[in-house]
Each structure stands twice: as C-alpha cells, then as structure tokens.
Design a protein around this nucleic acid. Structure first.
Lengths: 163, 163
DNA sequence: GCGCGATCCTTCAGCCGTAAATTGTTGAGG
DNA sequence: CCTCAACAATTTACGGCTGAAGGATCGCGC
C-alpha cells in the first residue's frame, strides 16, 4: 500500500471541500508536469516550456507573433523572448520582421524544428495517455466536462474582486 | 462571449482525449495558482511556496524535520533550505537541532508565524471557495473522486517505464 | 572500535516565471 | 507635421524549482 505524505494527503477534515479538491488537483498537475519534464530532459535534452513553444508553432504554419505566443502559452512577454532566443540558438525556429510593422517579429519553425518537434510530440502523447490510463473513458469525459466549467468560471473571475 | 486563446483552447481534434484533458487541467491549475499567488503578494507581501511551508508547520505543533517538509511539499531539499532561510529571516519560524541527531534540524512556527499564517489561511480558503464556486456540490465531489484515482495511478507509475 | 554506505542538509549553476522599466515603432488627433 | 498615448519586444531584478556535488553525521556490520 502506497502512503503518500504530501500536502494534499494531509488536508484535515475541517478544510472546505473546495480546498481539498484544489490541493489534489495541484498534486496531480505537479506529478504529471514533473514526469513529462523529466522524460523530455532524459530523452530529448529539452524542457517543457520549449516543447510547448514549438507546439504552438506547429499548429501555425505561417508562424506567430511573439505577443501571440505569449497569449497562447499564458506567460509574460519577457519569458517568450528568452525561450525564443534559446530555440533560435538551437536552430529550431527562425525569426522575421513582418512587412508594415517593424515593432513586431514573427517566429516560425525551421525544417529541423518541425522534425524535432514531431519526434517529441509522439512520445509526449504516449506519456500522457499512459498517465491517464488509470481512468475509464467515462471518467476522462467527466473530468473534461467539469474542468471546462471550472475554466470558464476562472477566466470569468479574471481580475474581479473575489474575497 | 469569452474567447480564450491559450494552449488548451487550440488543441485539435486529432489529439487524444487524454492530452486535451491534461492541457485543460494544467490551464485550470495555472489560473488558480497564479491568482492565489497574486493575491498573496498584494495582500500579504508573501509567496505561495512560503504560505505552503507555513501551512505544513501549522498542522504539526511539534515542528517538522526539513526532510519531512521536503516530502510533504513535494519539492527538493535545496529548495526547502532556501524557503526556511527566508521565513527565518522574517521571524515566522524557528529552528532547533533535535537531540540525538545532529544532522537534522527541526523547524516550527513562532507565535508571530502562527498569527500571520492564520490570517493568510482564512483569506486563502475564501479565494479557493470562490474559484470553485462555479461547480455544484456534486461536481466538486466527482472531481475529487476522479482526481483521487488519477493520483493513485500517478504515484503508482512513479519511476516506472511508461513509453 | 572501525569502515563505509546511507541520510540530512547545504550550496551552486541553470532554467522558468513574474513584474517593472526601457527602447523603438506606430497611429490617431490637433 | 508633431505630439503623445498605445503597443511590441527586450532587459533587469528577483523568486522558485531542479539536479548534482559536497560536508557532516549516523549507524550497521564486522
């Protein structure tokens, strides 16, 4: 019998259910994210943020503006700048300045970037599928639906006063 | 109508459901964590990891060994050392060496630490409850149950070969 | 006693993330 | 034109997290 000793496991009965749900969800997310990060490092000598960055470009054949990547990855602009610098140095992406706006810059995958990403994406999907393999189809669907509702709520709350 | 443009929203139909569930869950976790972090910073000039650290001590009146905190927070030892240094400097915790093992050190809340934490914890719970307020009791319960199963699976998978 | 691997903690370099200030560019109003 | 606010990207300072290396201590087995 496994005996986890983490934050979530130690929630006490007087905690509100919402808090316990949150701690459990956070624990799951951290376990999955950590595992994916370790695998990416071991097998591809890269990191999750870089993988995510490439993933966005994969879906946008024409390339993306830095600000657009920032929005999609939900990270700040400064962060995107640094990630782009690294991927550029690795030869996985290329940058151009769009005609008509010299402030912006557009980033797209290089051929090498596309190939590299394909290889990683295949593995990535298998890892995720394996980790969620303990749930039934119906449970995955329920989870998907409930999280949709939660996410709507969260984006609606955005910068509203909450407490 | 809200139009999110993040990672999860851009998942395509050929992605396996598990991947879409994962991206959605990650988006939710990041939204919640980010919001809590911002509130803690704005209202208490502190950070989420420090709050979590104190939270563990709150539940352990006799104090905890550094290694125990590391396990419970699911972070590495080096990280715990730094957090402890900061909380020590803020006067919220105290350290002692347990009799019988001079390698170890035991950390516990100071009176000031306990008071400070109480104030933060009350707010924290209200934020979480507000954020999960969009779900019904039944949905929260389902989520709680499904995540339990997922978490069991994840800890079982631990460092097993997965793909 | 004594070796020696295990354990506890710390330190360090490296990456990711943020917020805030800065540089350069654009475009709208006077 | 010319200002000036808005916007795109970058830089900087700081915090969290990791993995790896190192120092001290412990305790098992001989």
């Amino acid at each position: 019998m496994i005996q986890p000793v983490d934050r979530e496991s130690r929630a006490t009965d007087d905690d509100h259910l919402a808090v316990r749900v949150w701690l459990r969800m956070l624990a799951c997310a951290n376990l999955i994210e950590g595992r994916v990060a370790r695998e990416l490092r071991a097998r591809f000598a890269t990191t999750l943020p870089r993988f995510d960055f490439l993933s966005q470009l994969e879906r946008a054949p024409g390339g993306l503006k830095m600000s657009e990547i920032s929005k999609r990855l939900m990270v700040t602009g400064g962060n995107v700048t640094r990630l782009a610098d690294q991927l550029l140095a690795e030869g996985l992406i290329a940058r151009t300045t769009p005609p008509g706006d010299r402030r912006a810059s557009i980033v797209r995958l290089t051929e090498r970037g596309r190939k590299t990403f394909k290889a990683m994406a295949g593995r990535h999907e298998r890892w995720i599928v394996a980790m969620f393999g303990g749930l039934s189809d119906s449970e995955r669907a329920q989870l998907y639906a409930i999280l949709a509702k939660l996410k709507r709520r969260l984006t609606a709350l955005d910068d509203e006063e909450i407490a």
